[in-house]
Amino acid sequence: MAAAPGRGGIHRDGRAAYLFLAPALLFFCVFLVLPFLFAVVLAFSDWGGFDLGTIEFAGVSNFADVLRFDGSFVRPILVNTLLFAVGSVTLATFGSVLVAYCIDRLSFQGFWRVLYFLPVVATVVAIGNVWKMMYQPAGLINGVLNKLGVNSIGFLSDSSYALPAVTVVHAWASIGGAVLILTAGLKAIPEMYYEAAEVDGANSWRMFWQITLPLLRPSLLFVLITQFIGGLQSFALIIVMTTDGGPVNSTNVAAFEMYQQAFKFGAWGTASAMAMVLFVIILAITLLQLWIARRRGEETS
């Protein structure tokens, strides 16, 4: 029988573990913890973004300006952000579930997964510019509509269509990553459940609704949370596909407004206050999703 390691050996193993973790912990502190703490300080300060000695304490005035109901951040920027996130999450989730379910029943599954994952590894600038050309009055989409007898639509020039148009692009670009997660979740479902349901005479829709979706809940929850966080933080597509969040501020979202306040107007305190508000919203929505999922899991168990 092997002797148990002594106390000195345990301490040596602990020091070795911390030594190996040190680079990751250092990276985490320098690039995540310290910037977050600095953003919290700036949220209660006035700073132009150049000299650290000019930071002046402003109290909660930045938050008061940001959260004014008649201000531009709450309406329409925060409303646009929530609409953009909800729309992209809905489209991406339904699309990824459908695609993953189909891929799971096709041959050459690796090829199809790679094909749908390509938009994830493509740059946002490339994706935005390609779709921007497709949305043009003389672009591919309007060309198809004209062939069907529908007049050209100003997808990016009409305030009624601009936000939905960008939302569709974001959802399309997000499907690939969700498909990989959901296909892995589908592979983890034991085949015996489907065989037993088939023996009982269940059709494909009944098996999908009563077997696939309940057992896919952990993967779906992860996809919903990550997609929603990505939707609330997204702003690169807005920069590429629109002109300063236009037309008429219809595509201006919270992350893009933070970028403008900090780098265009030099209002770093206002931008940091917006970031803190968005952080609280993301945290609250994430906790709500986890609570709903846990409650449904308890009800079905």
Rank of each mutant, 00 (worst) to 15 (best):
L180I: 10
I292F: 13
V240G: 01
L106E: 02
G246M: 02
R75Y: 06
R68G: 14
Y161P: 06
L115V: 13
G110E: 10
E195R: 11
L220V: 02
T123S: 15
S61W: 08
A202H: 07
F50M: 12
T81R: 01
V253T: 03
L26K: 07
Y194M: 01
F57T: 08
L67Q: 03
S174D: 02
T286W: 08
A236T: 13
V33F: 11
D158L: 05
Q289F: 13
G269Y: 07
G49I: 00
V114F: 14
L224A: 12
V240Q: 04
Q210R: 15
L37H: 04
G87R: 02
L98G: 12
W291C: 02
A17Y: 10
L278Y: 04
L67A: 11
F44S: 08
A162I: 04
A202F: 07
L32T: 13
F57V: 12
L180C: 05
V89E: 02
L98M: 12
G269L: 07
E298I: 03
A254Y: 05
F73E: 11
W131Q: 00
V86D: 01
W205H: 08
I282L: 01
V120T: 10
G201L: 05
P23Q: 00
T81L: 02
G95P: 02
R68I: 02
Q227D: 00
F256C: 10
V74F: 09
Y18E: 04
G8R: 10
W112C: 10
P119Q: 00
V41S: 12
M276P: 01
L288Q: 02
S88A: 12
A100D: 01
G6F: 02
S301M: 14
S72I: 14
I103P: 00
F84T: 09
T251K: 06
R15V: 08
F279Q: 03
P76Q: 08
T300W: 09
E257D: 15
H11R: 14
V40D: 04
S96Q: 03
V280K: 04
A267Y: 15
V169W: 01
Y116E: 05
A17V: 09
Y194S: 05
L215E: 10
L278N: 05
L182P: 06
G230F: 01
I10F: 12
A271S: 15
L32M: 10
D104A: 15
A162L: 04
L278Q: 10
G269S: 09
N129K: 14
L52G: 05
M192R: 13
V199C: 05
I77E: 07
V169G: 01
N129T: 12
S152F: 01
L237Y: 06
L215T: 05
R296G: 09
P190T: 13
R206M: 07
F235H: 07
E257M: 10
V99T: 07
L237W: 00
A126F: 10
V277E: 09
W112H: 06
V114G: 15
G71N: 06
S72T: 14
I10M: 13
G49Q: 03
L98Y: 00
V277T: 08
E299K: 15
Q233R: 15
T212H: 04
V248Q: 11
S45V: 06
T243C: 04
S219M: 06
T286N: 08
M207P: 03
R295K: 14
E191S: 14
I10D: 13
L148M: 15
T90M: 12
R75K: 11
L26Y: 09
D65V: 09
G8F: 01
D13Y: 11
V60Q: 09
N151I: 10
K147E: 14
S107Q: 12
L19S: 11
V40K: 00
N203T: 02
